[in-house]
Amino acid sequence: MPLSFLKVASVAIAAATVPIGLSAVSWSGHRLHPVTITVTLPPGSITYSLPGEFLRGEHPQANPRLKRRFNKPIEIMTYQVSVADYADCVKAGACQSPQETREIPPNAPVTGVSYLDASAYARWYSQATGDYWRLPTDEEWAFAAAERFRGGFEGLQADANNPAKRWLARYKAEAQLDRSPDPLPRSRGSFGVNSRGLADLSGNVWEWTSTCFVRATLAADGTGVANSLDNCGVHVVEGFHRTYMSNFVSDGKSGGCAVGTPPDNLGFRLVRDRPGWRKLILGYLGI
């Protein structure tokens, strides 16, 4: 294990008490990025619209809004995985080079990475640190993003007599955001922190989640899902707005959003799962 990946105690930041500008700067002199700063979100709940596509009968529906409770704290990276972080994985031979040809500061978020790249990084980083790191689920991301979570444009109910109304409404909603493309990734922290202390959410780097695209048919009585089909070749990508991308796509402009604004860039941040008792005991036993 390279020295720079010695396990570093994470800096847990309680929600709502976030010192702006807290960062890893001047941690150890030469390499700053190995210090993984995380935010630990206390248990709580959100009400948010589920990702995916929902039908009732033959017609698209507004995405159901659900209340989700998180009973355990969630520890999530304060910043997106950086260019320098990711380069270590490439150097170790565990990640392929990002599909990125632009000049980007090493402490900017890594971009030009696919879901497969992000997953490879999580695997390698888990091994390198001895902790279990993974992509956040879509609902964890939404919970962590708090006021910066926007969701998708899918939340409109179809007019059974005129499907085009829904397409036009979605198009207008996207156009009304009036967001011009902002292609070049910036140094970490450039997009500020949210109320929970996470930095750079919903800036110009969208983030992979571990949630598969789902198409679900709602029960006729409106109380549940009659059946659903996951397409795990496509994952939910979160950021300024929610979108869906094929696993191998690394260029945000490429994958989803046939009409409307595609993501500027694709990157990711990881969640650390607390070692459970099982792991702790096995750890003590040296297994």
Partner: peptide, 13 residues
């Protein structure tokens, strides 16, 4: 690459 799930979201909707 895909899985089927029944009554995925339960009655929570």
């Amino acid at each position: 690459m895909f899985t089927r799930r029944e009554a995925l979201f339960g009655a929570a909707i």
